[in-house]
Design a binder for these strands. Structure first.
Lengths: 246, 246
DNA sequence: CAGTGGTCTAGACCACTCG
DNA sequence: GAGTGGTCTAGACCACTGT
């Protein structure tokens, strides 16, 4: 059963979506909401903090909260899994395996997965499709910890993330590096675009609740297939702009 | 004066940075920290919530928090301003104005800035440089609300965001759309790259604390100049992957 | 089982916004 | 100055982790 504050957050989200609290208008005060839901002010604050986090309402000390609007909410799981994302948007996801191998970790792989050079890693390359159309080239690396599970999976079925979760390897954190690259000759052929065509590259590390790296992946998307959306604010900032060159 | 919980968060961040709490080890319990800092458990929870938000520590019910590591923290202001970002990284930012004009808002501009078609907008195009090297083409649009201020500014001095902030127009929220595009002939010439070369495009809306749009900008970076970093987690997700085509 | 984080309460005072 | 959000306290009980 979800916590009371989460229920309240959900009800408020719903109310905003249905126009009960219109965009640009003020949310009731914390005291009013506490009375309405018969909870303490602390619980109300937890609830509205969720909406502030989403960027759905804005808070300023001394004034009532402003409704910013409904935001396209994406669960963490949808962001971590190509298959879940595709399915939730009404597309049929697919995967074609190009290669799978077990090997000794090279320096970069060891750094990314926080293991030692020479430790086992599984390397996997796949083409990912949306409705049978190729949209992304995926190069993934997994630490020895999950190697046997990866090798035992049906890698064309789609979501490795979901299968790992079912085995108890929960993805709790993600760290993403996003840039633009030119399609190599191979990538161009696989994706059906011209060589040198722009690709949106998303390199990311998934970690367990204890911070243990579970997977590193380099995903290169056709530029016409995907747009990444990030929201931030003075109170919640997880976004940074890095120099590509030292 | 900063709140007590912010001071504590800062001290903990510092302690992690200096290796007092090593990566992978456990943070002291909330009770211990409360005693150590002579505050209530609630205040300690506010402090560690800040670190969890940053992705610097991970929490799991029933177990002590795990130290994930120091994270490259970027203030919200640095993300919103090219100049502040460049300066904080030791580069010299520059700007060259290509054009400035006031006009009647077209449909798309009106939608982005939440104004009416035909209302005043300021359109500004600039080349942004790092150490005198062109790295980004910027196309910005401002609503009538701030038009007179924009026109009165020295637009080659760099940060419009900072100048607007000084005038009381605080940027409190950001909403970013990130994708990859091909350089047009004009962009290629301005940036010194080949036509068709990949650019990392970041389109974003900045809003005031009340949700009032203050600026919309389309920034196209040379692909070798910038990488965007985003962190998310099960408890804090502001990241979404959108389809480029409906 | 003991320890620990997650949720909730009731009350207090302060800082800020706005009419 | 009244209203409202921001901070902090002290205490309670529950849910989960690990030994």
């Amino acid at each position: 059963m979800a916590a009371r504050y989460q229920q309240i957050a959900q009800e408020l989200r719903e109310a905003i979506r249905q126009g009960e609290y219109a965009i640009g208008t003020l949310l009731p005060s914390e005291g009013d909401l506490a009375a309405r839901y018969a909870v303490s002010r602390g619980t109300v604050r937890q609830a509205v903090a969720v909406l502030e986090q989403d960027g759905s309402v804005a808070a300023r000390q001394g004034a009532r909260r402003v409704v910013l609007g409904e935001v396209p909410t994406h669960s963490f799981a949808e962001m971590q899994s190509f298959s879940m994302w595709a399915t939730s948007r009404g597309h049929v996801p697919g995967a074609k395996v190009l290669s799978v191998e077990v090997g000794a970790a090279r320096q970069e792989e060891a750094d990314r997965l926080r293991i030692n050079v020479g430790d086992d890693v599984v390397r996997l390359q796949r083409i990912r499709t949306l409705d049978d159309e190729p949209v992304m080239v995926e190069r993934s690396f997994f630490p020895g910890l999950v190697a046997e599970h990866i090798l035992a999976m049906d890698l064309t079925a789609g979501s490795i993330t979901e299968q790992l979760t079912a085995l108890g390897f929960v993805h709790a954190h993600g760290d993403h590096l996003i840039d633009a690259v030119s399609a190599t000759t191979l990538e161009a052929r696989l994706l059906g675009v011209r060589r040198g065509s722009p690709l949106l590259r998303q390199r990311w590390l998934a970690s367990s609740p204890t911070g243990q790296p579970l997977a590193w992946s380099e995903d290169s998307y056709r530029h016409d297939a995907v747009i990444i959306n990030v929201r931030n604010s003075m109170s919640a900032n997880t976004l940074a702009r890095l120099s590509a060159r030292s």
